[in-house]
Design a binder for these strands. Structure first.
Length: 499
RNA sequence: GCCCCCAUCGUCUAGAGGACUAGGACACCACCCUUUCAAGGUGGAGACAGGGGUUCGAAUCCCCUUGGGGGCACCA
């Protein structure tokens, strides 16, 4: 029973799922799947002030999108529920009471104003900010009086004044803290809700969690949690603190912040799973990339599938050092996954991104165009820019775009007219178009690019577009000729204005 | 300020005392391929933070320094 691996991801619904949270969830999930254990989703909704309405939904959606399914938790239930902390209040009260009874905790009646004052004073004196333990040493009569008055109170942990507390982390070994540096943290708030410290210990114990995998930032409160476990007489699960994911600047946790890009554009970097989804990242790519942050599949492979990751995942292989999140590498990896997709699948996934760009098209209609763009896409959201001219009129190109840098308006005009004639009668297959146009370039004494650029710009409206012959073929003769005609007119106008 | 954690190319990492002339990947540079852009191919540049130990031998073990990160709420 105790050998069965039970792990959990315990987000609080105070915001959308962050990639850091997703990585924590992923590692827990990988460990569960690797060991045939159980992965639990528990919602830590004890901060009523910071609740974000649709974040609960987003967290679940984002996890599912990544393929991280939970065995127990919201929606699926399980024998250790409820899985919302807000529905477990009486449990926390019971154990807070127990801690009180055992003399491991005490009631504190200090107002938040007094607390703020104390903190400020301590800071001024260069002492660590924190609680001065005023209520810990309240005289019995005073305590009784406050109780009789019905003064609001919180329950605080009674941290030993001296000595040390040693905890054990699977990756780091023993970590020892001077108890003097620990604070009498609040366990139960005056609104009757527990703080994280109490709730996490009670739930992890009651839910028989075998391995607590959580972010690094929890190490500093680890001794507090250990103290609670011991005060309650409970055995500690195995703790594994995962390295932080750092901002690309390497300065601080990955978080929303303005970033100035090379082109001078200031934009906010993506941090939420949903943002990556909306930006056209594939779940399998994000999954893969996130898995390489703090863990390595092997020395020479970093593109790997879910099953491979599950087979290979080991706790001991998790790195201790924080990892910088590289948007560039994620983008590259996303391209790798896009290229590996079957064309039908890519077409299907592209549909919503085309729609978002105002192009309503079916996967079937997109399918023939996939070979033209598949290896060019870094994200699904790139597709409309490559394909829009197939579905709407091409942008009217400025004349100078039509003219190759080694040509002038006149020669371009000549080339385009010749191309028009050739395209009007050539057999309409990709191969025939290509060989005819190459032949034409030779006849005109032009390099291929000198002839192809004006045709490309005329038919697509852009200088950078998918391969020309396939593009022309799929555009169809009628549209190709119409667009070439338009370009010819454009150039003629430009020419007459020149004179 | 106090406490804690961490430390291999710019970045993600392999490496768990001799197999290291420190390997792979992203990014970067050059060349090749080429109708643009990609993709692909070949090659290049690029790291064990510093200093002490331990050892026949240290990227790997220990200590110090430095640097980075995290925490110090009736938030999680």
């Amino acid at each position: 029973m105790t050998h069965h691996v039970r792990v959990r991801f315990a987000p609080s619904p105070t915001g959308y799922l962050h990639v850091g949270g997703a990585r924590t969830a992923l590692f827990n999930w990988l460990w569960a799947r690797h060991t045939g254990g159980t992965f639990i989703l528990r919602i830590e909704d004890t901060d009523r002030k910071r609740l974000v309405p649709d974040s609960l939904e987003d967290i679940q959606e984002s996890l599912r999108w990544l393929g991280i399914e939970w065995d127990e938790g919201p929606g699926v239930g399980g024998p250790y529920g409820p899985y919302f902390q807000s529905e477990r209040l009486e449990l926390y009260h019971r154990y807070a009471q127990e801690l009180l009874a055992r003399g491991a905790a005490y009631r504190c009646y200090c107002s938040s104003e007094r607390l703020a004052r104390v903190r400020e004073e301590r800071r001024r004196r260069g002492e660590p900010p924190g609680y001065d333990r005023h209520c810990r040493f309240l005289a019995d009569e005073e305590r009784a009086r406050l109780e009789a008055e019905g003064a609001p109170s919180v329950v605080r942990l009674k941290v030993p004044e001296r000595g040390t507390t040693t905890v054990h982390d699977l990756l780091r070994g023993e970590i020892t803290f001077e108890n003097e540096t620990l604070e009498d943290v609040v366990l139960l708030k005056s609104d009757g809700y527990p703080t994280y410290h109490l709730a996490v210990v009670v739930d992890d114990h009651l839910m028989e969690i075998s391995h607590v995998m959580r972010a690094d930032e929890w190490i500093s409160s680890f001794p507090l949690h250990a103290l609670i476990y011991r005060a309650l007489g409970w055995e500690l699960p195995t703790f594994v603190h995962l390295p932080m994911i750092l901002d690309p600047t390497g300065k601080g946790k990955l978080s929303k912040r303005k970033q100035k890009r090379a082109d001078g554009h200031v934009e906010e970097n993506m941090t939420m799973v949903r943002e990556f989804r909306e930006a056209g990242y594939l779940p399998e790519a994000l999954f893969n990339f996130i898995a390489t942050l703090g863990w390595a599949y092997s020395g020479d492979r970093e593109v790997f599938g879910v099953d491979e990751a599950i087979a290979r995942f080991e706790l001991e292989a998790i790195r201790k050092a924080p990892a910088v999140f590289s948007y560039e590498k994620l983008e590259w990896m996303n391209g790798v996954y896009i290229r590996a997709l079957p064309a039908e699948e890519l077409a299907r996934r592209l549909v919503p991104f085309m729609a978002r760009a105002g192009i309503e098209v079916t996967a079937e209609a997109l399918l023939p165009l996939i070979p033209l763009v598949q290896e060019r896409l870094k994200t699904l959201a790139d597709a409309p820019a490559y394909l829009d001219f197939f579905f709407r009129d091409a942008e009217v190109p400025p004349p100078e775009l039509l003219v190759h840098k080694k040509m002038d308006v006149e020669s371009t005009l000549r080339a385009l007219k010749a191309a028009r004639d050739a395209l009007a009668e050539v057999e309409w297959t990709e191969e025939a178009i290509e060989s005819r146009l190459r032949q034409l370039a030779g006849e005109l004494g032009l390099k291929a690019g000198q002839l192809f650029q004006p045709i490309r710009v005329a038919t697509t409206g852009k200088r950078v577009a998918p391969p020309l012959f396939g593009t022309l073929y799929h555009l169809g003769r009628e549209r190709v000729l119409a667009r070439v005609d338009r370009a010819i007119e454009l150039l003629e106008t430009a020419l007459s204005q020149q004179e």
